[in-house]
Nucleic acid binder design. Structure first.
Lengths: 303, 303
DNA sequence: CTGAAAGCGCTAACAC
DNA sequence: GTGTTAGCGCTTTCAG
């Protein structure tokens, strides 16, 4: 009897109200995702990875962009909590200004997983890339090719990732005796435009390094624009390497040697960690992914 | 008194349960977004545009990917309805297989806005690009440069966009007397890999057209790979133009002449249409955006 | 102005 | 098996 009624209801186009179900069961089947910028392919691919694990499990994603704005981040986190998401996946804002908000989330036992970036000192699950290791590999490669002077287009200096990558460059250069003049360290502001300006400045210098490290995919795009515009010959005038692989690295002329992250993989892992927390309430897991080196043709062999 | 309590509650870290509020008020403040593929920068930018209008209004986005899979689309739509989203923004699956589901949504008065693609014959708001017009402009440009033979890497032939763009090419060629041999029409399957294979096949032909039209951004990437790999000289061996502008079109050597859509703009408009429907319950609005032509250096002037 | 009660759509627990 | 009831966290209404 009961079944007949249910059948009939379905046929008549009835949908259970998941909001009500959620209210009753205390399970909304919604996961909140906080991302700096959806339109960056890197994050878009992470999202794709997350989708791949959540979809089959009947979970859905509530998406928030922060645009690297700490206030927006704070407000978005409040909303996510208010929506009673079952967990939060977050790539926190560059500045790391909302430490106290994140702390509250952790304390209130809402499952929290950081990806790509962390807020240092918080006991949460996270998956990040080995930034120092990856960039160090790039520098070592340049050294091995005989480069003894190096410039770098950096991320915003306050950001976690920015600090890691810059310190990785400087440490390794120091170790290998590679020259990095003050004026060769250029702030690319984490953006395409910023990197474009930075690269133009560098290319105009009389005294240039023989190699250039670019700290992410978007900035590489800006550097490429500057290269084309100023008719710089890579790798003859200068050798260029990049953190991150992106569509454009492969088809640029010359194709860019880089260390690649695997954003989709990162999303997959972050999502899996979340499911782990939700299902087994296990302890925080920490994963550091290796960036893998891809040799292409943007570095010259020095005599 | 009441206020003091509310203040105290806030201080103690209280968050109203929006699910409960939603249940009571019948307003969830959630908009469902259905997208084929988040990791395609084109859609990611659309999302970004949508975010920009919804965020300030306190609306949030529930995101679903279909991967061009009609079943997944159907299931996602059901879930969105079950979540009692206030409206649905959708770029329907290529095949357009879920017409009846969309019909139901329209009939049940859930605000629905299509973007990028439509299901023909449904009375909904939508914002799309003038596919035929845009691609026709590309062909006219080639003609004006003296090209009288043309190949084309097409989208999946069943898709709405695919049909529009291909028919746009053929119609214009017909009109201008441009030769398009059967074997120059290559199915790029809407993907990078598909286009890569297609372009390789074309480049191996003995009898080649002097110009090539590529039907979207992702496929252009595949064609670029083939160009590099087979050492094809653009525009001397063949001239290439693309529908869509993307990061990579500008920095390729040579930079690619194209017609550009404005995805962020499209997202903005779709979101605004949705707000219109929600606030004023006005009638469906239809917008067709012009693609704008960008001349770069991938087309040769024929004698 | 404050307090009590009803009810949004559902499920879980219990009684029949 | 099926039917009834209470209550998830909130807002709204109506009474005091």
């Amino acid at each position: 009897m009961r079944e007949k009624i249910l059948e009939f209801a379905k046929a008549k186009g009835y949908f259970p109200d998941l909001a009500a179900v959620g209210l009753r069961k205390g399970k909304t089947k919604i996961i909140g995702v906080l991302i700096p910028d959806v339109s960056n392919p890197f994050f878009a691919q992470i999202l794709h990875g997350m989708e791949r694990v959540f979809y089959p499990l009947g979970y859905h994603l509530l998406l928030c962009s922060t645009d690297e704005n700490a206030e927006k981040e704070e407000e978005n986190l409040r909303t996510l909590l208010s929506q009673r998401v079952e967990g939060i996946l977050a790539a926190p804002t560059d500045f790391g200004g909302n430490r106290s908000t994140y702390k509250k989330i952790v304390d209130s036992n809402v499952p929290l997983v950081f990806f790509d970036r962390i807020v240092p000192g918080l006991e949460t699950s996270y998956v990040i890339t080995d930034n120092e290791g990856g960039i160090s590999e790039l520098v070592r490669y340049l050294h091995q090719k005989g480069h003894m002077s190096l410039g770098v287009v950096t991320l915003r200096s306050r950001s976690y990732t920015g600090k890691m990558r810059l310190s990785g460059v400087l440490k390794t250069c120091d170790e290998l005796g590679i020259l990095v003049k003050e004026e060769w360290i250029l702030d690319g502001c984490s953006t395409r435009e910023g990197a474009y300006q930075a690269a133009k400045k560098l290319f105009q210098l009389k005294d240039k390094p023989t190699s250039l490290v670019v700290c992410n995919n978007l900035m590489m795009l800006g550097v490429m624009k500057a290269i084309k515009e100023m008719n710089v010959k890579v790798p003859d005038d200068i050798s260029v390497v990049s953190f991150d692989d992106s569509y454009w690295d492969e088809i640029f002329d010359p194709p860019i040697t880089c260390v690649a992250q695997e954003p989709e993989q990162m999303g997959l892992i972050a999502a899996t960690m979340m499911m782990d927390l939700l299902m087994h309430g296990s302890k925080p897991t920490k994963t550091v992914l290796k960036a893998h080196f891809i040799e292409r043709a943007s570095v010259k062999q020095m005599k």
